[in-house]
């Protein structure tokens, strides 16, 4: 390629050669400038900012403000302008009541129980229970990985199940995580699978105890239950007890999370609706 170019240049007159080459250089330089130049644009526009700083304090603040409005604000706000974060909420009044009931359930029952449980049990015990339940729901994640065409994740789930059920003693230990190749894949559910198939969310719905969901994900939850072995434990009381243990145990690992989110919010109902949606949509993207 190089020698071919040299030949081309040999044909032209000396002066032309130089000019051509300079042109080529300028062209290259321009391309580079444009491809990397975006990062340097603010420098060139900083002159307005500088002149602003020579004004009185108050005026400087305002001109800085305007500067931001035209510059950074304008550029960055596109990222947040989309209406996509909205969802229809026809059950608003029901949902709001449920939200408050769940809130009270958390503060009056879930939190004190989990706190007591956490104080009474050593961390390795709680971690063992957590691993056990995660291992138990492998079929659910495996099936959904397959349905979404995530071959590698499905293989990993399967291998992890074999290793942790045997060497990990019924999934209480998690020896598989020692191997980077067997790192736990992200959690999967039917709601996520439906989403990748292009099924819309429907509307927002808050269930008692189970919390925020959407119409689509609620249907998904039925599938999730069907693939969870705990649902098949015979006396229903025993099944419910095991589910309760799972819940208390997993809450014991994140006491304080709900409180901190609620504290930071201004309109808690709207905040948690948005947090649920953003979090779920991010999971679908992965």
């Amino acid at each position: 390629m190089l020698s071919f170019r040299f030949d081309l240049f040999k044909f032209s007159v000396d002066g032309m050669k130089k000019k051509l080459f300079q042109g080529f250089l300028a062209f290259l330089f321009l391309i580079l400038l444009f491809s990397s130049g975006c990062a340097h644009r603010p420098e060139s526009s900083s002159s307005g900012y500088m002149s602003g700083s020579s004004l009185s304090q108050n005026e400087a603040v305002i001109s800085d403000d305007e500067d931001d409005l035209n510059d950074d604000f304008g550029l960055l706000e596109d990222e947040f302008e989309e209406e996509a974060d909205q969802i229809s909420d026809p059950l608003y009044y029901w949902n709001k009541v449920m939200f408050h009931i769940n809130d009270k359930l958390y503060y009056w029952a879930m939190k004190p129980i989990s706190k007591g449980y956490k104080a009474a049990t050593p961390t390795f015990f709680r971690r063992g229970i957590k691993n056990f339940f995660r291992n138990l729901t492998t079929p659910l994640r495996f099936v959904n990985c397959v349905l979404q065409g995530k071959g590698n994740a499905a293989e990993r789930e399967f291998a992890r199940f074999l290793v942790n059920s045997s060497i990990g003693v019924l999934g209480i230990g998690d020896p598989a995580s020692k191997y980077p190749k067997l790192k736990a894949p992200d959690s999967e559910s039917f709601g996520q699978t439906f989403a990748t198939y292009g099924i819309g969310e429907g509307f927002y719905i808050v269930w008692p105890v189970l919390g925020p969901s959407t119409l689509r994900n609620s249907v998904g939850m039925i599938g999730d239950k069907l693939l969870s072995p705990v649902s098949y434990v015979d006396p229903t009381e025993a099944s419910a007890g095991i589910t309760a243990l799972d819940m208390v145990n997993s809450v014991s690992f994140k006491i304080g999370d709900y409180e901190s989110l609620k504290k930071a919010s201004i309109d808690p109902y709207t905040a948690f609706r948005n947090i649920y949606l953003q979090n779920f949509r991010k999971k679908v993207e992965k």
């Binding site: 990062a39 420098e43 960055l76 947040f80 919010s265 947090i275």
Partner: peptide, 30 residues
């Protein structure tokens, strides 16, 4: 984002949830 030659934080995303987006829906609602 880079502004005037300096990197500045304009949003935080915690567990896939953008702080700006969450506040935005709340401010809109209020």
């Amino acid at each position: 984002y880079k502004s005037k030659g300096l990197w500045k934080i304009y949003d935080l995303e915690v567990e896939g949830v953008s702080v700006v987006k969450t506040y935005k829906t709340q401010f809109d609602e209020v």
